[in-house]
Design a protein around this nucleic acid. Structure first.
Length: 592
DNA sequence: ACCCCAACTTAGGAAGAAATAC
DNA sequence: GTATTTCTTCCTAAGTTGGGGT
């Protein structure tokens, strides 16, 4: 596989700018050499791995003496642990979380566990706790931090860079690579999304004794803090993580891993898009197959075929089963009867399925979808004699779905459809929406619209930014002001033109100037109007997630190269770092 | 067949930094 | 210069997937 990468790289088209092509050729040669040297076909991920270990959260700072906690109106001095946990809650007093009884109950139960015996004898009712002074104190501290002088800021920045330099990088197979998350998660209250049964529980402080270190045998093993021990040091080169620990709320493993800009992550990402491109080659066949399976005798197969149709057409997630100590969310395979409604006819359309459920992160998915009659009839059948809370696809799991997909194409799984449909949609929308003669801002709007089509397909939502309507109004005012200016400039230009007609060189020059000024204003107006459209259309849609995780970056890169749009207009610094491989690889003619 | 876990990708919101408006 | 808005980065929760155990 990795040898193929090398070949693929050298076959790429020449690039436009000399600077770039020299750089690219050198880089390609380098990459190919490296990748051949590093070739690992046995499932091992590295041969050498060295790092400094994770950075622990700073120790707890006691509150100043004058900051009081009160219980039932009376001042009470808390023990260190109780005070720290109280502080976690105090910081969140303005947050919506503290209005939820699940959050409050979980917090209170866990808080009482860290209290001394005496404290827990007194503090028995959360509503009698007064955290106001603590909250005020934390607010004042962050206010003070905001008002730091230039020098203080510079000093802080320098310190952080020092830390980044020491902990932020590792050496892997001879390369220095950036680490993604080298900081151990600090203690706090668990912020589960949606109606999470565990929200508000105490996430306790992670100690060196909780931490597993992974590095190579012949590396300098990271040292635990003085007088402390790691839980374990292992040398497992079949995995990519550098350190891990188990978080106490959900019992999940947490990992320190490489930054997306790293070669290891980049190659994986590249491979993901190659799999999606492979799907493109057999998608017609697969669609034929599942349509045929709508008629299958076996229920199991019909359910699988209808579910796959949803995964393909609606870009739904696979939908694993979830425990009831997690928020109740679903994906395709875990849909329940209560999540869809069937309408023989709705708003003039036949056979409409209305989806309404909470997906990942408890984001609502609502969609009215006209479907083939056969799909509709199947759904009716699946729902017969079932309660609302029963599984729609009771004969189907993500495992059996993925096993089936493996047979249709190597490496095919449910999520590949999301990647594929996202990327192909971007490519098609870009083709459709890009006017080659348009200005760069217009092209960028076209790009964002294409991106938006994908975000809508994948249901990537966000909360309406606060102050959205206000900022829209401000923008509208600005536009009106600009229009007035243009009117003014127009009449000035007309006057100047008349003067220039019979006037001297001087008047002609003045007229030219007016003309230029008018054009500049018009251009500014257009920019503003584009911004207005863009912002309003984006109100509840998040473009970042699809850009970062679903869109083959080579599509965007080639579009930029083809249409003379600087790549910086599409990808910011972080994104350019992550997609370095694609920026180097894809020429203007790349096709997904 | 089913369950569970490890490892990895995908996700929205918070916090911080930078840009722009005033 | 300061306040406000917008963009970027950080954070970590919440998914998917494959594999191993029973």
């Amino acid at each position: 596989m990795l040898v193929m990468v090398g070949i693929k790289l050298v076959q790429q088209k020449p690039f436009k700018s000399t600077f770039q092509s020299i750089y690219v050729i050198r880089r390609l040669r380098f990459l190919r050499k490296k990748w051949e040297e590093d070739k690992k076909e046995d499932g091992t991920k590295w041969r050498f791995l060295e790092h400094k270990g994770p950075l622990f959260a700073p120790p707890y700072d006691l509150l100043p003496e004058n900051v009081k906690f009160r219980y039932d109106g009376k001042v009470m001095k808390l023990s260190q642990d109780a005070e720290e946990v109280a502080g976690f809650y105090a910081r969140m007093l303005d947050h919506d979380y503290t209005t939820k009884s699940t959050f409050n109950n979980n917090f209170f139960t866990d808080w009482r566990k860290v209290m001394t015996h005496e404290e827990s004898k007194i503090i028995k009712d959360l509503s009698k706790c007064d955290f106001k002074e603590m909250q005020q104190y934390f607010l004042s501290v962050s206010e003070k931090n905001k008002n730091r002088t230039k020098e203080e800021k510079a000093e802080l920045k320098a310190k952080n860079e020092e830390i980044q330099k020491e902990y932020g990088f590792c050496t892997i197979d001879g390369h220095k690579e950036k680490i993604g998350n080298f900081r151990i998660e600090p203690p706090g209250l668990f912020r589960g999304r949606g109606e999470h049964p565990k929200m508000g529980m105490l996430k306790r402080r992670v100690m060196p004794e909780d931490v597993l270190i992974n590095c190579s045998k012949d590396s300098k093993v990271p040292k635990p803090p003085p007088g402390r021990k790691w839980k374990e040091v292992r040398h497992d080169n079949t995995v990519t993580w550098l350190a891990s620990w188990t978080e106490n709320v959900q019992g999940q493993a947490k990992y320190v891993m490489l930054n997306p800009s790293s070669k290891l992550k980049g190659e994986k990402d590249w491979q993901k898009y190659e799999t999606a491109r492979n799907l493109h080659k057999c998608i017609d066949k697969i669609r034929e197959t599942y349509r045929a399976d709508w008629k299958a005798k076996e229920m199991r197969i019909r359910q699988r075929a209808v579910a796959l149709y949803f995964i393909d057409r609606l870009a739904l997630r696979a939908g694993n089963e979830k425990d009831d100590d997690q928020a109740d969310t679903v994906g395709c395979c875990s849909l329940r009867v209560e999540h869809i409604e069937l309408h023989k006819e709705k708003d003039g359309k036949e056979y409409v399925v209305v989806f309404d459920f909470l997906g990942k992160d408890s984001i609502r998915y609502y969609n009215e979808v006209p479907v083939e009659k056969r799909v509709f009839k199947n759904l009716e059948h699946f729902m017969e004699n079932k309660k609302d809370s029963d599984d729609l696809f009771d004969r189907l799991t993500t495992q059996t779905m993925n096993e089936h997909l493996k047979e249709l194409m190597p490496l095919l799984t449910a999520k590949v459809f999301r990647t594929y449909n996202a990327s192909i949609t971007l490519q098609r929308q870009l083709d459709e929406l890009t006017d080659p003669d348009a200005t760069v801002p217009e092209k960028i709007l076209a790009y964002n619209r294409a991106n938006r089509a994908v975000a809508i397909l994948c249901n990537h939502q966000r909360a309406v930014p606060k102050g959205h309507s206000k900022s829209m109004e401000a923008l509208k005012e600005k536009i009106q002001a600009k229009r007035d200016l243009i009117d003014e400039a127009e009449s000035e230009y007309h006057d100047a033109a008349r003067a220039a007609k019979r006037g001297s060189v001087k008047e002609k020059l003045a007229c030219d100037k007016k003309k230029k000024a008018l054009e500049r204003l018009k251009e500014q107006l257009m920019k503003l109007e584009l911004q207005e459209t863009d912002r309003d259309e984006n109100k509840t849609i998040a473009l970042g997630t699809s850009k970062l995780n679903y869109l083959d970056p080579r599509i965007s890169v080639s579009w930029c190269k083809k249409h003379g749009v600087p790549i910086e207009k599409i990808y910011n610094k972080t994104q350019r770092d992550k997609f370095r491989w694609a920026i180097d690889m894809a020429g203007p003619d790349y096709v997904f």
